[in-house]
Amino acid sequence: MDFYYVKALHIIFVVTWFAGLFYIGRLFIYHVEAEKKEEPAKTILQTQYKLMSKRLWYIITWPSLFLASFFAFWMLWKNPIYLEMPWMHVKLAFVLALYFYHGFCHKIYKELQRDVIKYSATKLRIFNEAPTVILFAVVFLVVLKNSINWIWGVVGIILFGVLLMIGIRFYKKTRAKKSWDKYENELIEDDKKMRD
């Protein structure tokens, strides 16, 4: 098979792998947030999230990991010169980090399937940003292929990560304020009803 076909297939399965990782993180958050709902909504939502997670995890995400890796190893086998390039070593380190992230997602997936909730929605939101940072790093490395430029890219990624954390905290505060405002309005309405 021509090298470009293998490369195209590698890119396609990297995209589907990342899509699976991004979406599974959201499903984890929704599953944890459903824990605060009253019955029967809680059970209905968590049952649906379990089913959606199972399909996403085993039909899209795991196969994409294996196929993206298979085509990557095929490219490296056909062109071992890549293994001599410093940027490739850094890229492979990020890929290794992504494998660990995937493994940890599998652990969380198994726990949620058994109704074991160990992490808050906020912690999962922060955790869900890891593949975004890795994606930025890998794309910049592959495009720039320069040891100095990737250092600036990594610095940019760290700054991007800091901005993500600030955004998550801002979102949490905004959401908490809206919840408090809604609660206050309900109290005011209840007080009015009692006076009438």
Rank of each mutant, 00 (worst) to 15 (best):
K107S: 06
I44N: 02
L83V: 03
T122E: 10
S53L: 10
Y99W: 11
V139F: 11
M75L: 15
T61F: 02
I117R: 08
V142L: 15
L135N: 06
W62I: 14
N79K: 15
G153W: 09
I59T: 12
F140D: 06
V138T: 11
V162G: 08
F66Y: 12
Y49L: 05
L45T: 05
F100R: 06
T132D: 00
I60R: 00
R55Q: 09
I60F: 05
H31P: 01
W87E: 05
L144M: 11
K145A: 11
I158L: 13
F100L: 12
V116H: 07
L144V: 12
W74I: 07
I148N: 02
R114D: 12
G161F: 10
A130D: 09
F100I: 14
A34P: 13
K54P: 02
F73T: 14
Y101M: 03
A41N: 05
W74T: 13
A72T: 06
W77Q: 13
Q113C: 04
L112N: 07
T61Y: 03
L56E: 03
F71W: 12
M75I: 15
L45W: 03
L92C: 02
F70V: 01
R125K: 15
P63K: 02
K110S: 11
Q46T: 14
V32H: 05
M85I: 07
I134K: 01
F136P: 00
L164D: 11
I108R: 06
K118I: 09
L92T: 04
E33I: 03
L98Y: 03
H89A: 14
S69H: 07
D115N: 14
F104P: 08
I81G: 09
E35Y: 11
A41D: 08
I158M: 07
W74F: 09
V32M: 02
L45D: 04
I59Q: 11
K42C: 05
A41P: 02
R114M: 13
L67K: 01
Y49Q: 00
L56P: 04
L135E: 00
L144S: 14
K123I: 08
Q113M: 15
Y82M: 05
V138R: 06
V142C: 13
A130M: 15
I81C: 01
V139K: 08
Y30S: 01
V32Y: 08
E38W: 10
G161C: 02
K54R: 14
V162L: 11
K54H: 15
F73K: 03
